[in-house]
Computed example of a mutant assay.
Amino acid sequence: MNFELTAEQTGFARSLDDLLSRADALAVNRAWAAGDRDPGTRLWSRLADLGVTALATEATPVEMCVAFEALGRYAVPGPWIESAAYLPVALPAANLSESWATVAMPYALDADVVTDVYAIVDAGLHQASAGDRVTSVDPSRHLFEVTAGEPVEHGDLDAAFDLAVLATAAELLGAGERVLADTVAYVKQRTQFGRAIGSYQAIKHQLADVRIALDFARPLVFGAAVDPSPRAVSAARVHCASASRLAARVGLQAHGAIGFTDEYDLSRWLLRIQALQSAWGTPAFHRERVLTSLLDAR
Rank of each mutant, 00 (worst) to 15 (best):
L5V: 01
R14E: 14
S15W: 13
D17N: 10
D17R: 05
D18G: 11
L20R: 07
S21R: 09
S21K: 10
A23Y: 08
D24N: 07
V28Y: 00
A33F: 07
A33K: 04
A34C: 07
R37F: 13
G40Y: 00
T41N: 11
L43G: 07
R46E: 14
L47R: 06
L50K: 00
G51T: 04
G51Y: 05
V52Y: 04
T53M: 14
A56G: 07
T57K: 12
E58Y: 03
T60K: 12
V62Q: 09
C65W: 04
V66W: 01
A67T: 04
L71E: 11
L71F: 13
L71Y: 08
G72H: 03
R73I: 00
V76G: 04
G78R: 04
P79A: 02
A84D: 05
Y86G: 05
P88M: 03
A93C: 11
A93L: 13
A93D: 15
N95F: 03
S97Q: 15
S99N: 15
W100C: 12
A101T: 08
P106G: 03
V114R: 00
V114A: 00
D116R: 14
A123K: 14
A123H: 13
A123W: 08
H126P: 08
A128T: 04
D132H: 05
V134R: 00
V134I: 02
T135M: 08
S136W: 00
S140F: 02
R141M: 14
T147Q: 10
A148C: 05
G155R: 04
G155W: 05
D156H: 02
D156I: 04
D158L: 11
F161Y: 15
F161D: 14
L166C: 01
T168C: 14
E171M: 10
L172K: 01
L172G: 02
G174D: 07
E177Y: 08
R178H: 09
A181C: 02
A181V: 07
D182P: 07
T183H: 09
V184W: 04
V184L: 08
V184K: 09
A185C: 04
R190K: 13
R195W: 03
I197A: 09
I197H: 12
I197W: 11
S199H: 07
Y200F: 12
Q201N: 12
A202T: 13
K204Q: 12
Q206I: 01
Q206F: 06
L207M: 00
P219Q: 03
L220M: 06
V221Q: 05
V221R: 01
V221D: 00
A224G: 01
A225S: 03
V226D: 13
D227F: 13
A236W: 09
R237T: 10
H239M: 08
A241V: 10
S242R: 10
S242C: 09
A243F: 03
A248F: 01
R249P: 05
V250K: 02
V250P: 03
Q253P: 10
Q253V: 12
A254D: 05
A254H: 05
H255L: 15
A257C: 09
I258S: 06
I258V: 11
I258D: 07
Y264P: 01
S267A: 08
R268F: 11
W269D: 11
Q274N: 14
Q277T: 14
W280I: 03
W280N: 09
G281T: 02
T282F: 05
T282P: 07
R287Y: 12
R289V: 05
S293A: 12
S293K: 06
L295H: 15
D296N: 15
